[in-house]
Structure formats: structure tokens, C-alpha cells
Simulated scan of single mutants.
Amino acid sequence: MNGIAEHKEPPQARTPGAYRAQPGEYVFNFSKVNQILGGPDYSPVFGGCVEGDRMIVALMTAPAGKQSEPHSHPNEQWIFVLEGVMEILVEGQRHTAHPGELIYIPANTVHCGCTPSGKDAKFFTVKDASHSLHGIKVRP
């Protein structure tokens, strides 16, 4: 060693625009972190996203009457509905989730969703950090 401290750049977020937790940071305010699209080329959902070493979390809003296009992602996903109603289509099966209900999307599973009630839905989502928050749109 030459006695000079090395300056390391903090790790970058896997998800474009997401906030990457830095050493010594333990509390985050979703309304103050970058607001990003949950799936820029296939979904209208938006909100704050924070990434750690092994987990990605986001507090998202699904606009009323809007629908995402079919997509998948190589990481599994959990979606906890906080407000509103979400309809999801997972591998061709339709499900409806209400506040307090939890949705599980296995890795590499084609799915899409909408908010049919005329009211925005708000949900908290968690994914493992093997891939970004964004998925991959199914191409016809």
C-alpha cells in the first residue's frame, strides 16, 4: 500500500433512474427518491424505487383505467396492494387483488395487469436484484 486511500464510486442502480442505497443509509422516503416508470416500454405504473445489494423495492401507482402489456422478468416479484383494485393476468389466468392482498409472480412468467375500478391502485413491490425492476415486453 502506498498510504493513499482509494476512492471508490458507489455502486450504480440496475434500474435506470432508481435510487441506489449508499453505505450508511437506512431510511428512505419514497416521495423524495426519483420517480420512475415501472416498465417504460410496456407499463404506465410509476413511483419511487430503491435498490440494495440483493433486493429492489418500489412504491408504485397504477393509473386508473390503464393496462400494462404482457411482459416477464428473470427475477421473481411480490406485489402488495395498498389501495385500489388490481386485475392481473398470469399465464393466462385472471385474478383480482384488493388492498391487503399479495400477488406473486414467479421468474420468467408472462403477466400483465390493469386497474379496472376507475381509481388508481397503489402497491408496494419487491424483486430480487438479479435483474432490474424493469421487465421485458413480450413481442408478438
Rank of each mutant, 00 (worst) to 15 (best):
Q12E: 15
A13K: 03
R14V: 14
T15Y: 07
T15L: 11
T15A: 10
T15S: 08
T15C: 11
P16W: 12
P16C: 12
G17Y: 06
G17P: 06
A18E: 02
Y19I: 02
Y19E: 04
R20F: 07
R20A: 05
A21V: 03
A21R: 01
A21G: 03
Q22P: 05
E25T: 00
E25L: 04
Y26V: 03
Y26M: 03
V27S: 02
V27H: 02
V27D: 01
F28S: 00
F28R: 00
F28C: 01
F28T: 00
F28K: 00
F28L: 04
N29S: 11
N29V: 06
F30V: 02
F30K: 02
F30N: 05
S31L: 14
K32C: 12
V33I: 08
N34T: 09
N34E: 09
N34D: 07
I36Y: 01
I36C: 04
L37S: 11
L37N: 08
G38M: 04
G38D: 04
Y42K: 09
G48F: 04
C49R: 03
C49N: 03
C49Y: 00
C49D: 02
V50P: 00
V50Y: 00
V50C: 02
G52S: 06
D53L: 14
R54Y: 14
M55R: 08
M55F: 14
I56R: 09
I56Y: 09
I56T: 13
I56M: 10
A58L: 05
A58W: 01
A58F: 05
L59H: 10
M60V: 06
M60S: 05
M60N: 04
M60E: 07
M60L: 14
A62H: 13
A62N: 11
P63I: 06
A64H: 05
A64P: 03
G65P: 02
K66I: 02
S68R: 09
E69C: 10
P70Q: 11
H71G: 11
H71A: 13
H73M: 12
P74Q: 12
P74E: 14
P74V: 14
N75S: 15
N75I: 12
E76I: 06
E76D: 14
Q77I: 08
W78K: 07
W78I: 07
W78C: 06
W78M: 10
I79M: 06
I79Y: 00
F80R: 03
V81C: 00
L82H: 10
E83C: 01
E83F: 04
E83L: 03
G84H: 04
G84C: 04
V85T: 01
E87P: 03
I88G: 09
L89V: 13
L89K: 13
V90T: 12
V90P: 09
E91S: 15
E91N: 13
E91Q: 14
E91D: 15
G92R: 10
G92D: 08
Q93I: 09
Q93A: 08
Q93E: 14
R94G: 08
R94P: 05
H95S: 08
A97H: 05
A97I: 00
H98M: 08
P99L: 01
G100P: 11
G100C: 12
G100Q: 10
G100V: 08
G100Y: 10
L102A: 13
L102M: 15
L102H: 09
